[in-house]
Design a protein around this nucleic acid. Structure first.
Lengths: 195, 195
DNA sequence: TCCTTTCACATACCAGCGGTATGCGACGGT
DNA sequence: ACCGTCGCATACCGCTGGTATGTGAAAGGA
């Protein structure tokens, strides 16, 4: 016998997982609720019992994707030694994670359009941009990069990496990944305070 | 008496202008064709006589917006003297132009989601990224910035400026514009070859 | 154990959307 | 003056996201 809590959780996870598959493969607008509930083995009643609507379901999917990417970035950063190495490793991990076209479609293409840029930005802030700002603040504090306002710099770097990830998602040539990472590395290095 | 060519052109311009207004104000998904043709004083028959559908109409709007932004960037760049000054002036002009929320909604939020990232990227390439790449190539050629592949660098800078523009579109505080432009200026200066 | 309440979901239905097929009157070449 | 063509208007359709209501099984008290 399955408890109601178990069943509830199971249904919700299935809906998120299946809609994530479909959103990633075909894009938000091209996926219908009918298709989602069919693939999930439930009905629209179940969907609307768990979520407020299609956009709310997408929000749950986006949250999951962002958490996974953030986890990969943190893991890569912690593997490196000094602060500057952790910073660069984290940036490279983010861009590499974004190389997956399905992640990008959800995180960077449909995300802002579906939820609105404000909501999307708030979620991105919690998931990744906050870590980036923290890392930059540390690097400013210990003099690795020159003293300057970190908020606008965070946005510039975040945008640069988002765009880099988007590009990588579209190109099949593996050489582009290394070329882009090299360019990013040069850009980051140029920020470093000259000794 | 109006010729057919005049009338045709007039109807088309009205459709583009009105849908641009609505897309900018409410977003692509929230605007219906019924509303567009009502505000334009025509019917859906006219719309589908001029465009293949809603997305095609949006494409025409995006093209117009991009051309306007590109014109502002070129004008600002030509006003400056030396190559480095033209480069920085152009970048600043792009970010400033993007501060208009209505331009951003069309160019950066809905654009990729509606047309797909590939098509959007191709249009952006023609409208602005090409100029950016050209400017960077010149700066590399005359030794202002160190020799390096310009394609990935172009993407990074393009993404950084897009994000900066998006941010500015949401904040009402005018100080953010100068702060962001300052951060961008520092970033660009750090690219410069040390003498 | 039995009865009742609650909850997780199914069923049936709807307004409105983008899109299409067809009709029609005026312009424009001959 | 004629008639083909062009620029739209009208009427209509399938399908979509969303909602109102029904239903059977688990949870809880006696």
């Amino acid at each position: 016998m399955v408890t109601r809590a178990e069943q509830r959780e199971r249904t919700r996870r299935t809906l998120v997982a299946e809609s994530r598959r479909l959103f990633a493969a075909k894009g938000y607008a091209a996926v219908g609720l009918a298709e989602i509930v069919r693939e999930s083995g439930v009905t629209k009643g179940a969907l609307y019992h768990h979520f407020e609507g299609k956009a709310d379901l997408f929000r749950a999917v986006l949250e999951q994707v962002q958490q996974e990417v953030a986890a990969r970035v943190v893991a890569a950063a912690e593997a490196a030694g000094d602060p500057w190495g952790r910073f660069k490793a984290g940036c490279a991990a983010f861009v590499t994670a974004g190389a997956d076209p399905e992640i990008q479609r959800i995180m960077l293409i449909d995300g802002p359009a579906v939820l609105g840029w404000n909501d999307w930005r708030a979620m991105d802030e919690d998931a990744s941009a906050e870590h980036l700002a923290e890392a930059l603040a540390d690097l400013v504090a210990n003099g690795t990069i020159p003293d300057q306002p970190i908020a606008p710099l965070t946005r510039l770097l975040s945008g640069a990496m988002n765009e880099a990830a988007l590009w990588l998602a579209q190109t099949a040539t593996p050489g582009d990944l290394t070329a882009t990472l090299a360019a990013l590395s040069r850009l980051l290095e140029s920020l470093r305070a000259p000794f």
